[in-house]
Design a protein around this nucleic acid. Structure first.
Length: 278
DNA sequence: AAGTGGCTCAACCGCAGGCGG
DNA sequence: ACCGCCTGCGGTTGAGCCACT
């Protein structure tokens, strides 16, 4: 059985909203709220619009305290960090940026941040070809793509969500908010392909510093992975892999690479990087 | 000045999940 | 337990704008 259409497409108006339509919608919602029924709302106020369209217009444009215009560096950082951690969960990311809508963030990511970030990761002195962008994006956020050759015991995304408190609708906002408040950098590294973002490297390095005392003998210094201008050095991936392999405390097992912790405990490298050791 | 290509962003589309009957 | 409706979400589209030739 087919899905019932949300509205009569023959009589519904599409395209850009006129100031009059905006005014009608805003006035009604200001006075009465949405009434919990977007489908019925346009009929009530005499708009030839689909309920979904009204909802979108309200959420993305008419709602009070909506911020438009350029994103701040801090906002960019939060978006990047969260994207790396949880992927394209725009609504969750938007919840961390008051006044920003998921649509805004999605657009900003797709048109600017993605290019900015991927461009930064391009091999030094080279620009990215179209195919490279696709591949690089998959590496940047494997959870968004099909290929992902790093072992992900238990499913990374699910575990991230669980750790971050995404289990419930209420938990989503609250959980992420508190995590970000503590340290947005602490969330970085979720999309643990082979560390294709600056933040991941930064994060790993901070982890390494923090952990140095916890490991017997410490860990080898993380190799230089970036050029002074922020571009990745040639062979950054290989260097990172070599660095991992050079750590005495990484004991390969069938379940993935394990860290040998002081006191006899061991844990999955990925869990460690993701902060499940807390 | 006109044509063209790239970029931006508002809006649409379709799917998944929640919820009530 | 099942079904249908509604909402919310993420992906995609396309009109308008802008820069470049």
């Amino acid at each position: 059985m087919g899905r019932a259409p949300c509205c009569d497409k023959a009589t519904v108006k599409k395209g850009p909203w006129s100031p009059e339509e905006d005014a009608k919608l805003k006035a009604y919602i200001d006075e009465n709220g949405t009434g919990g029924n977007w489908i019925a709302l346009p009929q009530k106020i005499g708009l030839k619009r689909c309920g979904k369209s009204c909802r979108l217009r309200w959420l993305n444009y008419l709602r009070p305290n909506i911020k438009h215009g350029d994103f701040t560096e801090e906002e960019e950082h939060i978006i990047c960090s969260l994207y790396i951690s949880i992927g394209s969960r725009w609504s969750i990311i938007a919840a961390q940026l008051p006044g920003r809508t998921d649509n805004d963030i999605k657009n900003y990511w797709n048109t600017k941040l993605k290019k900015k970030l991927l461009g930064k990761r391009a091999p030094h002195g080279h620009s990215l070809a179209a195919a490279d962008v696709v591949e690089a994006e998959q590496q940047l956020n494997p959870s968004a793509g099909a290929s992902y050759d790093m072992p992900v015991p238990g499913g990374f995304e699910e575990r991230s969500a669980s750790k971050l408190g995404f289990g419930s609708a209420a938990g989503e906002a609250a959980g992420v908010a508190s995590t970000v408040e503590m340290s947005s950098a602490s969330m970085v590294g979720g999309g643990f392909g082979y560390g294709h973002v600056d933040e991941l490297y930064d994060f790993l390095y901070s982890k390494q510093l923090a952990a140095a005392g916890a490991f017997q003998g410490g860990v080898p210094p993380l190799p230089e992975l970036q050029c002074p201008d922020g571009g990745a050095v040639v062979g950054a991936d290989e260097k990172f892999s070599t660095w991992m392999a050079s750590c005495d405390h990484y004991v390969p097992t069938t379940g993935g690479q394990q860290l040998q912790l002081q006191g006899g405990n061991s844990m999955n490298l990925q869990d460690f990087v993701l902060g499940y050791d807390q």
